[in-house]
Design a binder for these strands. Structure first.
Length: 501
RNA sequence: GGACGGGUAGCUCAGGCGGUAGAGCAUCGGACUUUUAAUCCGGUGGCCGCGGGUUCGAGUCCCGCCCCGUUCACCA
């Protein structure tokens, strides 16, 4: 215990110092944690109103009375006058405390105000001698006492571990981080607007799945006490959403979290946000058109321009987007043909001739997938549809009528990021059962990402699902792209890190 | 899991040739009624990630471990 105290002695001293101030405040009969404060306006509104009034009345700048609230981010004390920077969510304004304006008692009480405290302040807004827009405080009130020191004012908080583990400090110290998350919110809002305007119904399906399904991924396992059984955190909502199409909804979407028990890197977080939508009577070609429309809507709304830069490269999202069959793209970028063979070993030979290392356990479909990731995706900066994927790696997608080895599936890539996965949904229950059985075989052969047989889902398909196309969009990656963030952790408020003891 | 880089004051960072651990900001005390990274004077503050080892002596060298980042592998 004592060791622990000594270990934190410095920080403890800073905290202790503030606690003593807090006690002095209480001793004066003031409450350092107020319940409510009515402000007349926000800081950015007050600044905008002042600037506007000023531009109209050119000779004598008007002074406008305002009551503002915010956090003190800087204090400059000059004896009988003090300047503070006050910041709220949207902006910053300087506050001037003069002993003549607020009185000796209130001025003396400033001794117990620290950087980090929240205050409310009233007074006229004017420019100082040096031209800074400033509230000349006539009164102020402490709203919340802060007991811990904030990160340094000039450099902010740069330690990435602290930024992720204690995001509140990151948000306080680095205003641009708040902008990233505002933008993320606008992306999600724009997606919903587009979907809602087209009659898509937002639904919520289970997060606890008795059988993990809808994607090839390792699930998290959890346990329900009353039912005395294991559940899986969902890896995708797909099979439930398709059940809703069976039930008669024609346009549904779900925008929520998926959980996959796999590696963590700059593009993968164990929990991530996915938009999945399903549209009856549509196929993958029509869905490609709609996907373009949807993205263009969101990009224009959020970025304001269809050309933007991601990690130093220009992305041009203007329509039409390039559409190229996966096998054609492999021919173009990898210089090999994987379409004219279906033989696993031959495909592996050709892949290796293109310099792609192929693990002996990979089947034909995964070889194609591997070559795509290694040789094709790195070229896809501006938006590109790859379409017609091997049936082996697309167990929920409908086959092409003229080529049963391929499925009507597409993916969208932008900024070298995989953003979407979509297909004409397989609605033939007999084929679906066969595909599941193929997956089960792979699972038994040791592939623990292979999909499970979901008997109830087959039953639903037997009841009948109309022709349907479905699309999944990785929201985190879309947010990375549109905020020019290099890591998925930069667009997730509380990314997963190892817990500390 | 492998490779590389990092972990030093509350924050941002120096030091690293083995010889009593530094700066700026913050904080505390003093001066100051127009500053804005305020200024000036003085002070407090460190298990130098953790544990071993070598050594008269270890932030510094060696070994192991933990955490973070990048990357490769795996995946979306």
């Amino acid at each position: 215990m004592q060791q622990e105290n000594e270990h934190h002695s410095t920080e403890q001293e800073l905290i202790q110092n503030r606690i003593e101030k807090l006690e002095r405040i209480r001793a004066r009969g003031d409450n350092p944690f107020k319940h409510k404060f009515v402000r007349t306006t926000t800081i950015p509104e007050a600044v905008a109103a002042f600037t506007k009034a000023e531009s109209v009345a050119s000779e004598t700048p008007p002074s406008q009375q305002a009551t503002l609230a915010g956090r003190i981010t800087a204090l400059r004390c000059h004896g009988k006058s003090t300047f503070a920077d006050l910041r709220d969510e949207g902006g910053k304004i300087q506050v001037f405390f003069g002993i003549k304006n607020i009185g000796e008692e209130a001025y003396a009480a400033l001794d117990d105000i620290d950087i980090g405290d929240f205050i409310g302040v009233s007074g006229p807004i004017k420019r100082t001698r040096t031209g800074e827009i400033t509230v000349f405080a006539e009164s102020y009130t402490l709203l919340t006492k802060s007991l811990r020191p904030l990160p340094e004012k000039y450099h902010g908080l740069t330690d990435v571990e602290t930024r992720y583990r204690r995001r509140y400090l990151d948000l306080v110290a680095n205003p641009e981080v708040r902008e990233v998350f505002r933008k993320r919110s606008r992306i999600v809002g724009a997606l919903r607007e587009w979907l809602d305007s087209r009659g898509f119904l937002e639904v919520e399906t289970p997060m606890l799945h008795p059988i993990p399904g809808g994607a090839t991924a390792r699930p998290f396992i959890t346990y329900h006490n009353t039912y005395d059984r294991h559940f899986y955190l969902r890896i995708a909502p797909e099979l439930y959403l398709k059940r809703l199409i069976v039930g008669g909804f024609e346009r549904v979407y779900e925008l929520n979290r998926n959980f996959r028990n796999e590696g963590v890197d700059t593009r993968h977080n164990p929990e991530f946000t996915m938009l999945e939508l399903y549209e009856a009577y549509q196929d993958y070609n029509g869905l490609m058109d709609e996907t373009e429309e949807l993205f263009v809507y969101v990009v224009e709304k959020v970025v304001g321009d269809l050309t933007f830069s991601y990690q130093g490269e220009q992305v041009c999202a203007g329509r039409p987007w390039r559409r190229i069959a996966l096998h054609d793209a492999i021919r173009e970028f990898a210089g090999i043909d994987l379409e004219s063979t279906r033989d696993r070993d031959e495909a592996a030979r050709r892949a290796e001739s293109a310099g792609v290392e192929i693990d002996a356990t990979l089947g034909y479909g995964k070889i194609v997938d591997e070559v795509m990731k290694e040789r094709v995706v790195p070229h896809l900066v501006s938006p590109t549809f790859l379409y017609d994927y091997p049936v082996e790696i697309s167990p929920l997608a409908k086959r092409k009528p003229d080529n049963p080895a391929l499925t009507e599936r597409f993916q969208v890539f932008m900024g070298r990021l995989e953003l979407c996965n979509a297909f004409s949904e397989l609605n033939d229950p007999i084929d679906q059962r066969a595909r599941f059985m193929e997956q089960v075989k792979q699972r038994e052969a040791g592939d623990d990402e292979a999909q499970h047989l979901d008997e109830d889902f087959i039953t639903a398909l037997e009841v009948g699902m109309p022709p349907t196309a479905g699309l999944g969009i990785g929201i985190d990656r879309l947010a990375m792209l549109l905020t020019d963030s290099p890591s998925i952790r930069d667009v997730i408020l509380f990314p997963q890190l190892r817990t500390l003891d």
